[in-house]
Design a protein around this nucleic acid. Structure first.
Length: 206
DNA sequence: CAATAGATCATCT
DNA sequence: GATGATCTATTGC
């Protein structure tokens, strides 16, 4: 898929709270598959106890403390890989968790990798599902996203939804902070995120 | 449809 | 040794 050129590294070099909504409607491309980002969450630095980086720099989190535009991939629950995009600048360990994609390209491959035979909307509608669909693992830890096999690109059109903000999913600390960004009403949102309070960024959509 | 249990292991204490 | 930025199957109405 060659919709547009990959985004340059400086696109990612801003606070996670700004990068997270900016990534909505961008496209992730990896290994013959691509999907549009429809759900993100911002994770901040030291003051955000839900963020891995709040515990300081360790072997796992070191890429968060480096420059923006790299992949932070981690393994969770003994089973799933999750993809984040490193934001901000060196020593400012903000990042953006990618929570859901609308599949665009390479759907056959996604179905194979996921062992799934339901609707297309269920292929990548969750943090663990999208990494499996796009074959993203810890092998991609620290990889640049501005060139090569693994890139993020702007998309020519925006989906016909409005951006909304909610609290983040699946965390225990700072659970009420409004740092989850979605295309409100998009059919590919992660299932567990569909309910809960939604404070619209504009007027409501019918 | 909603709630819950189980899977399963890297990371940090 | 406990926990966790999840997913799926199963149980119960």
């Amino acid at each position: 898929m060659r919709a547009t050129e990959p985004l340059a590294l400086d696109f990612f070099a801003r606070p996670a709270t700004e990068l997270a909504p900016a990534l909505l409607s961008c496209v992730i491309v990896h290994r013959e598959t691509a999907g549009m980002i429809v759900e993100t969450e911002a994770y901040l630095g030291l003051h955000d106890l839900a963020a891995h980086a709040s515990r300081g720099k360790t072997e796992r989190t070191r890429v968060l403390f480096g420059p923006a535009g790299r992949a932070y991939v981690y393994f969770i629950y003994g089973m799933h890989e999750c993809l984040n995009v490193v934001a901000d600048r060196e020593d400012e360990p903000g990042c953006v968790l990618i929570r859901a994609l609308e599949p665009l390209s390479g759907l056959d491959l996604m179905y194979q990798r996921r062992h799934w035979h339901g609707p297309t909307t269920g292929l990548a509608n969750g943090p663990g599902k999208l990494t499996q669909a796009l074959a993203i693992t810890r092998e991609q830890y620290g990889q640049r996203l501005d060139k090569g096999d693994f890139t993020i690109r702007a998309w020519k059109t925006k989906p016909p939804f409005q951006i909304a903000v909610t609290s983040r999913i699946g965390i225990t600390h700072c659970a009420d902070w409004p740092l989850r960004f979605i295309w409100a009403g998009h059919p590919c949102l992660s299932v567990r995120g569909r309910k809960g309070s939604v404070s619209a960024a504009g007027s409501s959509v019918g």
